[in-house]
């Protein structure tokens, strides 16, 4: 069985907001180390990977590995019934087809109980190799959100170029184009500043639609890391106290 007590429902609410438009159904894989989710979007171009460590919960118990197949739309609706600062307890019995959620109000005796149907989801798990990326960029997550939102007004794609000069985001739309250069900030480390590590010049193009979606995770962390190597998927990573959310996005290829 699973019993996990989260100090604040906000983390789960934000996580669901970050993935619900990318993925419809997914397995939350629970084991004694915590809860993991890996799912691809329909087109298999983007992948989201979530980790919530057991140590990030106020109380956590999972006797044996348990996949909780969830419709993310339904989960979002049930989580909307929780206040951000409610204590959130999730429970599932072995082989059960129900996930129960309890929200305990912080400053009152209100206890709300919800149940959600679980489903069998047959999804392939991808084996993501450890990669030594050619470039790592760390920047304020709000800055990344602004860049991808701004450029998505102009075109469908963004070219990300990492060079000695810094990291440049370039959008070439039909009617307008734009580019934004971020230089490494020498006197300011993350979360406010930008750091760039580069072994090799990188030049890759990605669909902005997905990046705008990934940027929703800025509610979970003030810092985002972009890891890039030529001709391999981009890794966009947000770390927070209880775990992380990572996105992989296949690069666009020239014709």
């Amino acid at each position: 069985m699973l019993e996990a007590r989260l100090a604040e429902a906000a983390i789960l609410k934000r996580l669901l907001d970050s993935i619900k438009e990318l993925v419809t159904d997914a397995n939350f894989e629970c084991n004694e180390e915590g809860i993991n989710l890996q799912a691809m979007d329909n087109s298999h171009v983007a992948l989201v990977s979530v980790k919530l460590s057991a140590s990030g919960f106020k109380k956590y118990r999972c006797d044996r590995p348990l996949p909780l197949g969830v419709n993310l739309g339904s989960f979002t609706k049930v989580l909307k019934c929780a206040k951000d600062d409610d204590v959130c307890i999730i429970k599932a019995a072995d082989d059960a087809d129900i996930l129960s959620l309890t929200y305990e109000a912080r400053n009152s005796d209100r206890i709300a109980e919800y149940e959600m149907k679980l489903m069998d989801i047959d999804a392939d798990t991808l084996n993501i190799p450890d990669t030594d990326y050619d470039a790592r960029v760390s920047m304020p997550s709000a800055e990344f959100t602004r860049i991808v939102r701004d450029l998505s007004q102009l075109g469908e794609s963004v070219r990300i170029e990492v060079s000695k000069e810094g990291v440049r985001f370039i959008s070439d739309g039909e009617a307008a184009n734009g580019n934004i250069l971020l230089r490494q900030t020498d006197d300011d480390a993350p979360p406010e500043g930008v750091t760039i590590e580069m072994n090799q010049h990188v030049n890759l193009t990605f669909s902005l639609k997905y990046l705008v979606n990934f940027a929703k995770s800025s509610t979970l962390s003030n810092v985002v890391q972009l890891m890039l190597s030529n001709d391999v998927p981009l890794l966009v990573s947000y770390d927070f106290n209880q775990g992380h959310i990572r996105y992989y996005l296949a690069p666009k290829i020239g014709d």
Binding site: H44, L126, T205
Partner: peptide, 14 residues
């Protein structure tokens, strides 16, 4: 026009 490969091409199934 640029296009994308699927991630299956980069990451093998477990």
């Amino acid at each position: 026009v640029a296009d994308q490969h699927s991630l299956d091409r980069y990451f093998g199934a477990k």
